[in-house]
Amino acid sequence: MKIAVCIKYSLDASEVKVDPASKELKMAGVPYKVGVIDKHVLETAVTLKETYGGTVHALTVGPTKAKESFREALAFGLEDVTLIENPLEGEVAPDVTAVILAKAIEKLGDVDVVVCGEVSDDGFTYQVPPRLAEALHMPQISFARTAAIEDGQLVADRDLEDSVQTVAAPLPALISVMEECNTPRRPTLLEAMKAKKKPVNIWNVETDLGLSIAELQQKAALEKVHAEGVVVHRKQYVLKGDDLNALSNELVDLLLADHIIEGGA
């Protein structure tokens, strides 16, 4: 079985701060890393491989400097990681990403299962997996909490707001998993050292995938015209101390004084 996983070098959104005066998003120094969800994606793929046999190949669209951060991914026990250099300036739009990933999966050839995350930490669009399924003409099991192969079909629990469904799709198929689907392993030192020797391939969209950058640029349907931070004003009054009675009284007095609650005896 040949498994392709899509992972993303994401910025850590929890580190993005907002300047309260200018509403500017302060992006300097915000770290990038392999996304939180991606560890679950890798775990899903590697567990499938261990259970049913096969190979796992990771794909990512991003900046070349992301190369180093995929060592950790390789340590999960993948065959290789291929980084497809982001052909456009700035963030990669989900519509463009899906087109590129589809082409790369076709190039890998004979892929049986594609594993994605339900949503990326920073893109946060939920768009790439369904768009990719469309492009590859594959059925997709979204919001999966489990993953198994039974009688040549991909079988998983799909978790929606009002229902949990056990669904099956003939291979090749795409699955996008939720964080709750598993607990990712922690690769050991020796696994990580072996992974250091594995390749991170770099593909270029034009020379390796035969796509035209000009056409990809055309495809991006959204044009960013403005960005700003969301400023929330809170009093941030913090009480501490060992005497919980005193703390409670102090807090209640404050709430009364600020008319958050009503007094009267």
Binding site: A13, L25, F124, A221, E228, V230
Partner: peptide, 18 residues
């Protein structure tokens, strides 16, 4: 909403339908 709600982007959607 972007970055889990930390910020807000304004996009022009170039397609019809959007």
């Amino acid at each position: 909403m972007i970055y889990s709600g930390v910020g807000k982007n304004t996009y022009k959607i170039k397609t019809q339908p959007a």
